[in-house]
Design a protein around this nucleic acid. Structure first.
Length: 765
DNA sequence: ACTAATAACATTTTT
DNA sequence: TGTTATTAGT
């Protein structure tokens, strides 16, 4: 055996790696080398003679799996690492379900419904049942169903439960059980599964078919689970069914980083692991190798406010490092300016690469302002989440064609495209078809095949249109096993008329549509190429492509090339990542912590853990910021600093005042006395802006200028100007270098502001 | 059946 | 603010 690599580990890591005789729980503090333990443990198992296909390793994202495989390959070679069963619960059990689908009365080419499809299906069911979709909000209904599925509660059981019924009744939604039941039936008829079904049906398969369970339980002799704190009840039960009897299970996680309870994650899974797995060994990794002592200290002081947690003492032996810095901006736009300026400064003055910096926010909607700020400065950035490529209209339309071709029972796909591009099949016709389908308890596709059989009354013209649509799809279906994904993909785009639709006009809209279409085809082409390279003479079929695409997450989608770009993402998607410098923005009450969490202790603790995750992403620099006001649905809202800020031990936090005039303008009293937010230095004893910030701030020398020319306008002190947001005001002074001029302007209604003329839209009047 | 115009509504986080 | 659902007009 060659396991010299174990010498790379510290003692507690090594202990966790070497224990393979029974169940174990590894509590891994932030930055303590969790991934290292997992990869080394798998390598160790392989060196001990275990076969790669006997190991099941479950990760939180596909990207995490990919990276872990690469690291294992370095330890034991690519051959063995390649054949490991490693991936997310969803993707691995999806693979398995496609093999075993007939037992569950699905075919192997079932569609995976996206949340949008689920909502639309719910909408249809509501209409059918004559329920008001203002009372039964489709999103909320989906949430309830998802919750039930994650707790492994089936419709009949749901309806039989009195407590559940009473709760639903109180929420004015007594029919939820009925809707759930119908939903399951319709999903089945459509040969479709949603995300939760991938877990639920896996559980049911193992529960009802002992021989299937045994097959997989004996194949997987050792099971490892990463990010165990974010698993839900269904995942917990799947794990139990697969490991019962041998208990060779190792789960790794950190209860302080549990941030997915809204998705059904049960923190109890990790808190009670040692009770559920008798004789389980507990290992704790407490040394943080990632961050400075200050960052670890700040994070510890924050998380101490949470009640329920496993006791641990995370520490760092790295440098003490610099304090966290808090900036308070006047507006959301200014917060963007401050952050982007500092990113620029860190890059220009400290030589920090853009790829080592990240802006983390609570909600996707916050990204736009930072995007604009970075664009103006020509700073390259990459944004994750929000509306991704696959969420765009034309892409979803094309994917709907693909889905229908793979699975003609996919009704959401059918409804989406039967009249796109427009071919004269309108609402009335669709209503008729749906009505006939529901009445005869068959799918719409069946009705479409021969409407007359189902007594649908149609004009001859409409009949003709339906027929030619049907024939077109049949034509594609005939080719789907014959051509590879790229070939049939381009065929569908052309023959369906989508291509024509995109090229019929020359405005910007159709330009982006054209770009998106060719990008999609490109992606399909590379998919086919990669499949070909991996050896098999098997075609990369459209069905393979679809299956892959439906389970991709935004983080998975990231290009592997290391481009030098600033990362923008939600705190949630930053889990597991690390950066030299992290900017945590929007630190305001009702935003972070989010207003939805305000009235529940449990959710507040989750928000706090989320903030903990955000802070611990930083290796060296952590910048916090908030704004006094912010645009919200087109209205300006006033904000207060987050209550979490005052939970950070004051010795680790420094308040930085961006602009001199804020000294008088900011309600320091209310901020720092009434809220008892600690400030490490006395604001009033500090010098001018550039003196305070000289170590990490853009240093703007205060050369006073008399006149400046900007965009052909000659500006000087005393002149009156107009600004988009702030209104009319008088220039008080101008300073800076030509081309980078700051103007102090006293606005009539918005007070005194200091603006960079390079960016501010100012009109002389 | 399609288009344009207006009203309503929404943002928490994601496999 | 930006998107989506509904409505009225062609």
């Amino acid at each position: 055996m060659n396991a010299d690599f174990l010498n790379d580990l510290n003692e507690s890591q090594r202990n966790a790696v070497e224990y393979i005789d029974g169940p174990s729980l590894v509590i891994a503090g932030a930055g303590s080398g969790k991934t290292r333990v997992l990869t080394y443990k798998i390598a160790f198992l392989l060196e001990m003679g275990m076969k790669p296909w006997n190991i099941l390793a479950l990760t939180f994202t596909n990207k995490a799996a990919r990276e872990m495989k690469e690291r294992i390959a370095l330890l034991v070679g690519p051959d063995r690492s390649q054949t490991l069963w490693m991936g997310t619960f969803h993707s691995l059990f999806n693979r398995m379900l496609r093999q075993e689908s007939s037992l569950l009365h699905f075919t192997s080419n079932y569609t995976i419904y996206q949340p949008g499809d689920c909502k639309s299906l719910i909408n249809g069911i509501l209409k059918e049942m004559g329920l008001d979709n203002k009372v039964y909000k489709p999103g909320a209904v989906c949430g309830k169903i998802s919750e039930a599925k994650n707790a492994l509660i089936l419709p009949d059981q749901y309806m039989a439960d009195l407590e559940t019924y009473q709760r639903d009744n109180r929420q004015k939604m007594p029919a939820l059980g009925q809707i759930y039941k119908k939903y399951v039936a319709r999903m089945h008829q459509a040969n479709a599964m949603d995300f939760d079904d991938l877990l639920l049906y896996t559980y049911l398969l193992f529960e009802h078919y002992p021989e299937v369970r045994h097959k997989y339980a004996s194949r997987f002799q050792y099971i490892l689970v990463d990010e165990y704190q974010d698993t839900n009840y269904a995942q917990h039960e799947i794990l139990r069914l697969l490991s019962e009897g041998n208990d060779h299970v190792c789960v790794v996680g950190d209860d302080a980083q549990s941030i997915y309870s809204f998705r059904g994650a049960r923190i109890d899974n990790i808190l009670k692991f040692t009770q559920q797995y008798q004789g389980a060994k507990l290992f704790k990794l407490e040394q943080n190798y990632r961050s400075t002592q200050t960052i670890v200290g700040a994070a510890n002081s924050l998380i101490a406010f949470n009640k329920e947690q496993i006791k641990k003492d995370v520490y760092s032996k790295n440098e003490i490092g610099r304090p966290l810095v808090l900036n308070i901006a006047y507006s959301d736009v200014e917060e963007g300016e401050i952050v982007c300026n500092r990113i620029h400064a860190l890059h220009a003055q400290k030589g920090l690469k853009y790829q080592n910096m990240a802006i983390l926010y609570r909600t996707n909607a916050q990204s736009r302002i930072f995007e604009e700020g970075l664009r103006k400065r020509m700073i390259p950035y990459r944004i994750y989440g929000g509306r991704s490529f696959y969420d765009q209209k034309e892409i979803r339309d094309v994917l709907a064609y693909f889905r229908l071709v793979i699975n003609p029972n996919d009704e959401e796909a059918l409804k989406r495209i039967i009249n796109y591009p427009t071919r004269g099949i309108g609402n009335t016709t669709m209503e008729k078809l749906i009505h006939a389908a529901v009445n005869s308890e068959v799918g719409i596709w069946e009705v479409l095949k021969d409407p007359l059989v189902f007594n649908v009354t149609l004009s001859a013209a409409t009949h003709k249109k339906l027929e030619s649509f049907y024939e077109m799809i049949i034509g594609f279906i005939e080719k789907r096993e014959e051509e590879d994904a790229y070939q049939i993909g381009s065929r569908i785009i052309k023959e369906s008329g989508i291509f024509q639709e995109a090229y019929k006009s020359h405005d910007i809209e159709s330009q982006t549509m054209q770009d998106n279409l060719s990008e999609l085809l490109n992606a399909m082409n590379t998919f086919v190429e990669i499949q070909k390279e991996s050896g098999e003479e098997v075609h990369a079929l459209l069905t393979d492509y679809l299956s892959e695409v439906s389970l991709l997450s935004d983080v998975d989608n990231q290009e592997t090339e290391n481009k030098d770009m600033v990362t923008l993402m939600t705190v949630h998607s930053a889990k597991g990542l690390e950066f030299e410098a992290v900017f945590i923005v929007g630190m305001e009450e009702n935003l972070f912590p989010n207003s939805m969490a305000m009235y529940s202790q449990r959710e507040m603790e989750e928000e706090r853990r989320l903030f903990y995750v955000a802070i611990t992403r930083a290796k060296n620099f952590c910048f916090l910021s908030c704004s006094k006001m912010r645009f919200h649905y087109g209205k300006m809202d006033f904000c207060e600093p987050s209550s979490f800020l005052k939970e950070i031990d004051k010795q680790y936090l420094r308040l930085e005042v961006e602009r001199e005039e804020y000294r008088s303008e900011l309600p320091h009293e209310s901020l720092f006395n009434r809220n008892k937010l600690a400030v490490s230095q006395d604001l009033h004893t500090r010098g001018k802006l550039h003196a305070i910030n000289s170590d990490s701030e853009v240093v703007t020398e205060g050369n006073t200028l008399d006149t400046v020319e900007v965009n052909g306008q000659i500006l000087k002190s005393g002149l009156t100007v107009e600004h988009d947001r702030f209104g009319v005001g008088e220039i008080l002074s101008l300073e800076g270098d030509p081309g980078n001029v700051k103007a102090t302007i006293k606005f009539r209604n918005s007070g005194e502001k200091c603006l960079l003329l390079k960016y501010a839209k100012i009109k002389l009047i």
